[in-house]
Design a protein around this nucleic acid. Structure first.
Length: 865
RNA sequence: GGGCUCGUGGUCUAGUUGGUUAUGACGCGGCCUUUACAAGGCCGAAAUCGGUGGUUCGAAUCCGCCCGAGCCCA
């Protein structure tokens, strides 16, 4: 039996170990009926460091849903994966081993990545088990593992065969430091010091000249046009002319475009291929030629003439500026600060390069993808707006090529002669074209004998958008695609942080939808960010990071789980130590109450004829069961948690248990014993999804040593009929008697001579008198003699408002001035009549008899002491 | 700059199909050794619902503007 104080440290790790070793949360996989399965597609965390509060928070919310559904009899599929083929893992490896990926071959560097990530993953596994998440540890994957590589490459080939992918030479955002293309989401803005250079340009075949301000004079050789804003009257006459680029001599057209920023520089701007995003737009919109002056490593090309081979942003810039000055065309140079696009990982300014890239088509089917989003149930509903806005604002297809050392290779070769792509055979996957042979000896298109391997790898998202298929065991069997666990797809729930709805969730919906023709998720659960105590996002630079490890050393895991469950779905949640303290207090209360229950009744008797007070408690509990179930169904964690806590603490412990205690101590009351244990058992189940460890300890100790509470049946209302009004009134009478004792500085077990009650407390008289130590308790048939003074009239505005509209202020004024009469239950005021159901008379009651009169909700109580 | 979300006692929070006494917790003050729990119980004080203007008989709730915070995108 539970005794002493609850020892969370020992108990929690004991159950965590047993849950894993006994496969408590294993997916049974026997049910083929999707309706009895509850499957969760957990987004695999990036392996880039240690566990943070975002992981803890998100995982616990998922776990509450998993446990709730498991107890409702569902076969829960709760897998776990690691996204360890991305650039974040490469960076981690470089930092950890103090190496540069450029210094190793692809295979070699990948091996290093696996060693480093394996260590982090082992540590992470332990941490996840340490927060008691009911993951099935037999259902795990890494996005770098061969099985996943195969799925990823199958997906690529399948989409290509469907005509959903194409290869195009297009500008890509390029990091010259990392020497890879990166996606836009991997860039961030940075304020940097720079210089504006005012450079004189000659108009061709004319004496005229104009000035252009630029921060990047090294791009002069890449200049392909000069732009003027249509509203720029001063320079309008230049449009249609040609300009001569100083030093490099190429002639470029002067064009008009409204994307020119009139605020900055001289209003004239040069377009280079490519200096920034606008250059790309101009290049495409005006069909301009390409002049590539900077290569992959940020070095000038032969287009730059004598500057060929110089480092662009340093050596070449310096040399060009100096030569411009010598040529007397550098009119001014002044320091400024401006915002530049840098790679978020290394802080290097990005370049734009033209590369062959693979794309997945999105723009032609945005309506379908929007409809797919609509078909999912969103928790909370409002988050669908983000998905919708994202799709409606899409302007580009999805670039999936990355030029990186590690990652999953494109399973494709190209004809050296005609560039025709040759896909790998599906049965050969996974392949690495750099080391594996192509499936054909010569180009099927032109017969040329040399095939060149693709050396790009997939963008991480191209793989992490396949997690539903990875989990379901999607594969090609030689004839068709099939799934190992078809019953789990589509998944019942996809959890996702609100910051990455637009790419992770969206990309996953797109790819799975294209592969299966089905929306991959029935529902989406969005979680917020964990903020610090002051509601500011935790970040290294602010130094406000609280590590979960430190906190877990100090507090029980269940306390952290209690805190995490205190959130409204989708909202950000501030880390609050108070929240954990509150959880600890609840655990202590639960523990102590359990000790008392066990002490008062050490086994559950058969159901006897129940006494009114017991019926009342069980009926109230029925309502609570219904409420908590409904809230958890709607992912309203905080409401479920708070309501349950409050009902357990106040109604059960403070009200009912105090009464039951007396009855059982005075003599074996079977009705009380039965009710106490039945209710207690129900509480353990209801608390189990939140306080996973302490409920398990109590459950095994008190009710079932063999089977986990997490495998028990979720409670259902038992349908007890009770006089709820009498119960509520009785509790109000107890409460008013407590107040009487408090006001009179009496202890709670002080004796009271006589109490008279006017109100419905049918069948509960003895319970009241016993718990409040009342010697004689009488119920009054008639209202005690009181003088009542009318103190005012309360209007029922919900009815009076609509009926009387602008007359309401007049009525109120009349009531205020005592200018009204009530005749036959009808109120006459301000020339209108209000029926009895529209108002209530407020009275102050004065009791002049013996004793003191107290007013309780639903009863009048007279105390003689 | 654009979109979305949020702003309620000292702190965190419930409450948004408009209805007049705004929920609970933490903290605070007072009282009570009731043998499960004093890390408990009972009682109490504490909020012009971010600001402002409007719609309405009536606004925390609906609308406009402003301020502040967060996320995403330029």
């Amino acid at each position: 039996m539970p005794s002493g104080e609850y020892d969370s440290e020992t108990v929690e790790s004991k159950w965590q170990d047993r849950w894993v070793s006994e496969d408590t949360y294993a997916y049974q996989g026997e049910a083929v009926d999707p309706n009895t399965v509850f499957s969760i597609d957990t987004p695999p965390p990036t392996v880039s460091g240690s566990l943070h509060w975002g992981h803890v928070y998100g995982s616990i919310l998922q776990d509450v849903v998993a446990r709730f559904n498991r107890m409702q009899g569902k076969d829960v599929f709760f897998p776990f994966g690691y996204d360890d083929n991305g650039i974040a893992s490469e960076r981690l490896t470089e930092d950890e081993l103090d190496v540069r990926h450029q210094d190793f071959g692809r295979r070699e560097f990948q091996e290093m990545c696996r060693e480093v990530t394996a260590e982090y993953e082992a540590d992470f596994n332990e941490k996840m088990q340490g927060i008691g998440v009911s993951i099935d540890w037999d259902q795990t994957y890494q996005t770098i593992e061969p099985r996943v590589q195969r799925i990823s490459q199958l997906s690529f080939i399948e989409l290509y065969d469907q005509g959903r992918e194409y290869r195009q030479r297009a500008p890509a955002i390029w990091c010259p430091e990392c020497e890879t293309a990166i996606s836009q989401v991997e860039t961030e803005d940075d304020e940097q010091a720079s210089h504006f250079h005012d450079i004189a340009f000659e108009v061709a075949d004319s004496d005229e000249s104009f000035v252009i301000s630029t921060t990047r004079p090294e791009l002069l050789p890449a200049c392909v046009a000069v732009f003027v804003h249509p509203d720029d009257d001063e320079n309008q006459h230049l449009v249609g002319e040609e300009a001569e680029v100083p030093l490099f001599g190429q002639t470029v057209p002067i064009l008009e475009d409204e994307r020119v920023d009139l605020e900055t520089g001289t209003g004239l701007v040069m377009c280079c291929t490519f200096g920034d995003q606008t250059d790309i737009e101009w290049y495409q919109a005006h069909d301009l030629p390409l002049r590539i002056a900077i290569d992959e490593s940020g070095t000038m090309t032969e287009v730059a003439g004598e500057y060929d081979g110089l480092h662009a942003s340093t050596e070449a810039r310096e040399a060009i500026v100096s030569d411009l000055d010598d040529a007397d065309v550098l009119l001014d140079k002044r320091a400024i600060t401006h915002t530049v696009n840098v790679h978020e990982r290394c802080g290097t300014s990005v370049e734009f390069l033209v590369k062959d890239q693979w794309y997945i088509k999105l723009l032609d089917k945005t309506d379908e993808y929007l409809e797919a989003g609509r078909q999912m149930e969103w928790f909370p509903e409002k988050m669908f707006t983000r998905y919708k806005n994202w799709i409606e604002g899409l302007q580009w297809d999805w670039a999936i090529s990355r030029q990186r050392s590690s990652g999953i290779p494109f399973p494709v070769w190209y004809c050296e002669d005609c560039d025709h792509p040759v896909m790998a055979e599906r049965e050969d996957l996974p392949v690495d074209p750099l080391s594996d042979d192509p499936p054909v000896d010569s180009c099927p298109e032109c017969g040329h004998g040399e095939l060149v391997p693709e050396d790009d790898v997939f963008d991480t998202w191209a793989t992490s958008s396949l997690t539903p298929l990875i989990n379901a065991g999607w594969d090609w069997n030689g004839e068709e695609f099939q799934m190992e666990f078809p019953e789990i797809y589509p998944f019942d729930m996809r959890p996702q942080g609100h910051d990455i709805i637009s790419f992770w969730l969206f990309h996953t919906v797109v790819k799975c939808y294209e592969h299966t023709g089905e929306v991959p998720f029935d529902s989406v659960m969005i979680n917020g960010m964990v903020l610090d105590e002051n509601r500011v996002k935790m970040s290294k630079s602010l130094g406000n990071i609280v590590s979960p490890d430190e906190v877990m050393e100090k507090y029980p895991v269940d306390a952290a789980r209690y805190w995490a469950a205190g959130s409204a779905i989708g909202d950000d949640l501030p880390y609050q130590e108070k929240g954990l303290v509150a959880g600890e207090k609840l655990m202590r209360k639960l523990w102590n109450a359990s000790k008392l229950v066990e002490h008062l009744a050490d086994e559950t008797p058969d159901e006897p004829d129940l006494k009114p007070i017991d019926k009342w408690l069980l009926a109230e509990l029925d309502a609570e069961v219904e409420f908590v179930t409904e809230k958890l169904d709607n992912r309203e964690f905080s409401k479920a948690r708070d309501s349950l806590r409050s009902f357990f603490w106040h109604t059960f412990c403070d009200d009912y248990l105090e009464i039951a205690k007396q009855r059982l101590q005075d003599g074996g009351d079977v009705s009380a014993a039965y009710t106490l244990r039945t209710a207690h058992q129900t509480f353990l189940k209801l608390f189990a999804p939140f306080l996973a460890h302490i409920t398990e300890e109590l459950w095994r100790d008190m009710y079932d040593a063999e089977t986990s509470v997490h495998r028990a049946d979720w409670p259902e209302p038992v349908g007890v009929e009770a006089d709820l009004e009498a119960g509520e009134t009785a509790m109000a009478v107890v409460s008013v008697l407590r107040k009487y004792k408090t006001d009179n500085q009496l202890s709670m077990n002080a004796e009271v001579d006589t109490v008279q009650v006017y109100g419905n407390i049918a069948g509960l008289e003895e319970d009241i008198s016993r718990v409040m130590h009342v010697d004689t308790l009488e119920t009054l048939e008639e209202e005690p003699e009181i003088e009542s003074v009318v103190t005012g009239i309360d209007l029922d505005y919900a009815q009076v408002g609509p009926q009387f509209g602008s007359k309401v202020p007049d009525i109120e004024a009349a009531l205020e001035a005592d200018d009204y009469v009530i005749e036959d239950g009808v109120l006459h005021a301000a020339d209108v009549e209000l029926g009895a159901d529209l108002f209530e008379v407020n009275r102050e009651r004065k009791y002049s008899g013996e004793g003191e009169m107290l007013e309780a909700e639903g009863a009048l109580v007279i105390v003689q002491n």
